[in-house]
Amino acid sequence: MSEKKIKKIFIEGAISPSFIADAISKHSTKKDIGAHSIFLGQVRNDVINDKVVKAIDYTAYHEMALEKFHEIRESAFEKYSLTCLHIYHSLGRIVTGEISLFVFTSSMHRKDATEACSYLVNRIKEEVPIWGKEIFEDESYIWKQNRP
């Protein structure tokens, strides 16, 4: 696999609303796009055994994760008619209320964008080697488990 094809996916820290706004505005020159679909994953203040989650600390198996992202991306392009597709995931400590996953699909008509976006989020959660450590207010933690 060529190194060039591997896109930058990981962002150290939270994904800021201005980064998302910039990503949207960059597409204004692509006039064949008729629909965008965006998924934003936000860190939630779950309560586990009476303790409140205040942040999630994300780590990844970098090399394998980037290959997986690439594979998932290629498969979305094969399956749906997309103009473009962007994925960003945070690493490090993200506090509740901040964004840790940003999936952005664009197509001529809305069906491809919305279905591809949901397909990508599912595959990312199931197949990409990323782990979230849920940190409570007293700094104790548990390892997060994704729900199906």
Binding site: Y61, L101, V128, P129, W131, K144, Q145
Partner: peptide, 10 residues
Amino acid sequence: VALLPPFSGG
């Protein structure tokens, strides 16, 4: 050889 517990990204 990488030891991978269940993933929890997103």
